Computed example of a mutant assay.
Amino acid sequence: MSTDYQQARAALGARLRELRLTAPGGRLTGTALARDLGWPNSRISKLELGRQTATPDDLRQWADACGQPEAYEELRSRLAGFETHIRSWRRQLTDGHKAAQDAHNEAQTNSKVLRAWESSWIVGVLQTPDYARALLTRSAELHRSPRDIEEAVRARMKRQELLYSGRRRYQIILWEPVLHALVCPPSVLAVQLDRLTGLIGMDTVELGIVPLATSLKTPPGTGFWIYDERLAVTETWHAEMWVDDADSIALYLRVWNTLRESAVYGADAHNIINAARRALGSR
Rank of each mutant, 00 (worst) to 15 (best):
36 D>H: 15
174 L>G: 09
93 L>G: 03
257 N>P: 01
158 K>A: 15
174 L>M: 05
273 I>G: 00
185 P>W: 10
136 L>M: 07
24 P>R: 04
183 V>W: 03
42 S>V: 10
245 D>H: 12
111 S>F: 01
237 W>K: 10
24 P>D: 05
148 D>N: 00
226 I>C: 05
135 L>I: 07
170 Y>G: 14
41 N>F: 11
236 T>P: 02
31 T>L: 13
104 H>F: 12
219 P>I: 10
93 L>W: 00
181 A>D: 13
23 A>E: 06
252 Y>R: 11
261 E>C: 07
23 A>G: 07
143 H>S: 08
121 W>I: 11
7 Q>M: 14
243 V>E: 10
261 E>H: 06
165 S>A: 14
115 R>N: 06
109 T>C: 11
226 I>V: 03
182 L>H: 06
251 L>A: 15
132 A>N: 06
80 A>G: 11
69 P>T: 01
5 Y>F: 09
3 T>S: 14
213 A>C: 14
136 L>S: 02
243 V>F: 05
218 T>S: 15
200 I>Q: 04
99 A>W: 01
275 A>S: 07
195 R>T: 13
51 R>F: 09
120 S>H: 09
146 P>G: 04
255 V>T: 12
36 D>P: 12
56 P>Q: 09
100 A>K: 03
14 A>E: 10
108 Q>E: 14
229 E>M: 13
236 T>D: 06
